[in-house]
Amino acid sequence: MKCRKCGGTAVLELRRHNAAFCAPDFIEFFRRQVGEAVRRHRMFTREESVLVAVSGGKDSLGLWDVLLQEGYATTGLYLDLGIFDYSKESRAKCEAFAAQRGAPLLVVSVEQDLGAAIPEVQGATRRPTCSACGLSKRYLMNKAALEQGFPVVATGHNLDDEAATLFGSILHWQTEPLARQSPALPSTHPKLVRRVKPLYRLSERETAAYAFLRRIDYIVDECPFAKGATSLMHKEILNQLEDVSPGAKHNFLFGFLEKGRPAFERLADVTLNECARCGQVTTGTLCGFCKLSDQIKRAR
């Protein structure tokens, strides 16, 4: 197979684009897609400091790599979830990545704020572990950004992540998440920082290829709690569709963003309050993170 751009030997075929690329031209394609996402959604400017949430995986480290290459002012944020060796290894990958590039990295322990590490959440709440973990990560990302003065947090969510989330929300017709799902969420409250997903135009296979070609040392193994997660099942279903109909995931997500989301957005009318305990933003009286922390205390 030949590279669409230079005619050299291709290393990756992108069926949904009806194209194949050699390594340098794929890296160039990848960076352009990130650039397009940042511009189109006005995610951040070159004058702003961006907090990049990194997990040690291919997506977030790939994202940080692109932003550093493009000269953006970035700081990494690693959230230590306390998931045994998995967390130790992923933290080491983030620290090594940051050290090699001379980039600053903040480390925040979930246990310190939540009162327990993620493995302990199981049993304390009826929430699935991945859901409690996601809630904690969103909370701590926002808190860290506010405390350190960052106007924006960037995460490594890719096209497959976004398509799987969309699929899950539609299966249950969860209109509130549908109204909120976007590559860029503006700050709608002084205590809520902007959240952006610069990789939303790139598939999971493309982010893995970028990380491999850039020789980024990332954690390939799966989080032990992810086994059997619903989102993985949704990804598998979407990949089966993609196999017989290249571009299915792209069309599903991009069609929603263009035509579906505006309809749900009109319906959403949420009042934001400050949590009575911690002061972070919530739609209720007590925020989800403080409730989860209470459940853990009660379970002990």
Binding site: A208, F225, A229
Partner: peptide, 10 residues
């Protein structure tokens, strides 16, 4: 054959 799927995010 290196898997590219990651997740578990809810």
């Amino acid at each position: 054959l290196r898997p590219v799927i990651s997740g578990g995010r809810a």
